[in-house]
Amino acid sequence: MRAIFVIGKGGVGKTTCAAAMAVSLSKRLRTLVVSLDPAHNLGDVLGTQLSGSAREIAGGLSAIEVDMEAAIKDYLEESARKLKDMYGYLKVINIEGYLDTIRLSPGIEEYATLEAIEAILSANEGQRDLIVFDTPPTGLTLRVLALPKVSLIWGERLVRLRREILRKRSAIQKIQGERKFMLDGKEYTLTTTEEGDGVIQELLDYMKRVEKVNELQTDPKRSVVIPVMNPDRLSLFETRRAFDTLDKLSMPIGALVVNKFSGKKEETNLIARAEAELHRPARKIPLLEREPVGVDALEEISGCLDLEEWLPRG
């Protein structure tokens, strides 16, 4: 399975470009276009009502609008439930206070988005050839795309520390025998093996899942990021910053899509500058009188994209 991440500043026309690419590629690949942008308008662009379940739009094309609000709520509720179940009786930590903190914790949106990407990739493994992600505005998307790498670094460190803890526990147990702890009349033992340790199992399982996303993101044969911009300076600056971050994350970047090109000389100059600075050819979509809505209108636009040579080969 291959993936295209369409990124760009808010309002540049990511959704239209993502939908146009998906329409064009769905003729030869089983394609799913997914909107992760909380300000959904994929359904509006495709001219149909979408939900969190895949809806068939045309022959090989299906679409989903992930309800990010609901995904965040589910993620928090699930986290809160787990923590409350397990720690409700502990007075040494203020569980209610922690849960309130988690609700307000920066990054929750990013975690929920990453979980949504991971869930969609897992659910469609073997069922689709291509998934086109229409992403939230650049800032949030870049943080989401950076999360797998950051999570893997932390995961590796925690696994290393945990293994050292288990090794020491096991060594002490060999000399002292099994240690039992009496707490409030109950007897506890602490595990000394990797197989019996829920922490390390959970960590390894999580890392395996995140590693899959990371592998997909960084493999030029399987994924590509398509930046969309408008022919204006602010858009170019943001795209340039996005390129820097994507380079650091070793993510393959495809051709530049310049949307709403009116043909003015200053715009032509700016596009030439963007091509030179970013070392990518620009595909121009002209400024249209009417917003393209529906498969046929999107197919017309896809003619301007010509991204074939930049697509992951699989």
């Binding site: 397990m86 502990l90 040494v92 932390w154 702890f181 959970e202 960590l203």
Partner: peptide, 27 residues
């Protein structure tokens, strides 16, 4: 929660249920 650089909080939330006993013993 107390300002120490920590792993992404989704990792913490995943692991906390598994260290209940340890938290109990540490308490």
């Amino acid at each position: 929660f107390i300002g120490i650089p920590s792993p992404p909080s989704n990792i913490s939330v995943r692991l906390l249920p598994h260290i209940v006993r340890e938290m109990y013993v540490m308490g």
